[in-house]
C-alpha cells in the first residue's frame, strides 16, 4: 500500500501542474472579459511540444542539452516530498524513505540548483536576451531567497521541526492565537512565491516583449521536447510553492493517515486552499502593472523584513 502511495506521491505534482497553469490562465482571461482557453489546454500544449522536432543553437553546449532534464528532475524530486493531502512520507523500503528530501533547506537549495542550470542554459546560446534574462533571474533568486528561507524558518521554529511533513503535523495543533506570526510569514512566503515562479509583479509569463522578459528570455532558444520539459518544470515549481504555502501556513485538513475519508476531506480542503491562491495570483496578474526591474528588490526586501519580523515575534513569545 505504501509503495503504491509513494509512487503516486512522486508523480502527483507533475500530473496536476499543467491543470494549475490552465486554471490561472482561465481566471485571467475571465478577468479580461475574454473567454479564454480550456483549463486542460496546457496538457495539449505539452503533448504537442513533445511531438515536435527540435532545433538547438550551434553556439550552445551540452549544458543546454542536459539542463531541462536536471531542472525537471529537481522539481519531481522536491515535489515528491511535499505533502499534498497527507503528511505521510513516501518510502520504498523500511529505511529508505524520502525523509531527507523533506528538510526545508534541502528543498530550497535543490530548487535553487534548478535555477542555476536554467540561468546557465540562458547564457549558453550567446544571445543577448538569454544573457540579461539570466542576470535578472539570478538577481531575483538571490534576493528572494531571504524571504523564502526565513518564512519557512518561522514555520520550522513554530513547529520545532525541520522537515515539512512534521511541520504540518505540529502546526495543526497550534492554537489560533499563535497563528499571527505565521500569517505574516505567509505574506513573506507569498511574495517569494511570486518572485521565484516569475509571476507578477516581478515578471510577466505571457509577454512577447523580449527586452522585458526574465524567465521566458532564458528559454527562448528551446524547442520541442526540451521546451516541454522546461515549461512543465516551471508548472511543477509553481505547484510545489502553492502546496507548501497552503499546507504549511494553513495546515488544517491535511490527513495524517491513508484512510479514505481523511484523504477525501484533505483533498477537498486542498482544492479550496489552492483555489484561493490561484485566484490571488490571477487577480494580481490582471489588475497590476509589472514592477520596474529596480523596484523588485524593494519588494523582495519587504518579504525578507516581514519574515524576520514574524521570526522575532515567534522567538520572543
Amino acid at each position: 500500500m505504501t509503495l503504491f502511495f509513494s509512487l503516486i506521491q512522486i508523480v502527483a505534482i507533475p500530473a496536476i501542474s499543467p491543470l494549475f497553469v490552465g486554471i490561472i490562465r482561465k481566471l485571467k482571461a475571465r478577468m479580461q472579459s475574454r473567454v479564454g482557453a480550456d483549463i486542460f489546454q496546457p496538457y495539449r500544449d505539452l503533448s504537442k511540444l513533445f511531438k515536435k522536432d527540435e532545433i538547438i543553437s550551434k553556439d550552445a553546449s551540452w549544458i543546454t542539452k542536459i539542463a531541462p532534464y536536471i531542472i525537471f528532475t529537481v522539481t519531481v524530486v522536491v515535489g515528491a516530498a511535499v505533502p499534498i493531502v497527507t503528511t505521510i512520507i513516501p518510502s520504498f523500503t523500511p529505511g529508505f524513505s524520502l525523509l531527507p528530501l523533506s528538510d526545508f533547506i534541502v528543498m530550497v537549495y535543490l530548487l535553487a540548483l534548478g535555477t542555476f542550470f536554467l540561468a546557465l542554459a540562458g547564457m549558453d546560446s550567446g544571445s543577448g536576451f538569454g544573457g540579461f534574462g539570466s542576470s535578472r533571474e539570478m538577481m531575483v533568486a538571490a534576493l528572494a531567497e531571504g524571504g523564502l528561507f526565513f518564512s519557512l524558518l518561522v514555520a520550522s521554529v513554530a513547529s520545532g521541526s525541520g522537515h515539512v511533513p512534521s511541520m504540518v503535523v505540529s502546526l495543526q495543533t497550534l492554537p489560533f492565537t499563535s497563528f499571527m506570526p505565521l500569517i505574516v510569514a505567509f505574506l513573506a512566503f507569498f511574495i517569494a512565491l511570486l518572485a521565484e515562479n516569475n509571476r507578477f509583479p516581478v515578471d510577466n509569463p505571457s509577454t512577447h516583449l523580449e527586452l522585458t522578459m526574465i524567465h521566458e528570455a532564458m528559454i527562448l532558444e528551446y524547442s520541442g521536447k526540451r521546451l516541454a520539459l522546461m515549461e512543465w518544470a516551471t508548472a511543477n515549481k509553481l505547484v510545489i510553492f502553492i502546496a507548501l504555502g497552503a499546507n504549511i501556513f494553513f495546515p488544517w485538513g491535511v490527513a495524517a493517515s491513508l484512510e479514505g475519508h481523511a484523504i477525501l476531506l484533505a483533498f477537498v480542503l486542498f482544492s479550496l486552499k489552492t483555489g484561493a491562491l490561484l485566484f490571488s495570483i490571477a487577480f494580481i496578474e490582471s489588475t497590476m502593472a509589472k514592477f520596474r526591474v529596480f523596484r523588485v528588490p524593494d519588494l523582495l526586501f519587504t518579504s525578507f523584513v516581514l519574515a524576520v519580523t514574524a521570526l522575532c515575534i515567534i522567538i520572543t513569545f
Binding site: 485571467k28 479580461q32 507578477f200 509583479p201 522585458t212 490582471s286 489588475t287 502593472a289 509589472k290
Partner: peptide, 16 residues
C-alpha cells in the same frame, strides 16, 4: 501602453 507595462485590464479594454 498599458499592456506593455503588464496592465492587461487596460490593454483589453482599450483594444475593445
Amino acid at each position: 501602453i498599458m499592456l506593455d507595462t503588464g496592465l492587461s485590464f487596460g490593454g483589453s479594454q482599450g483594444t475593445r
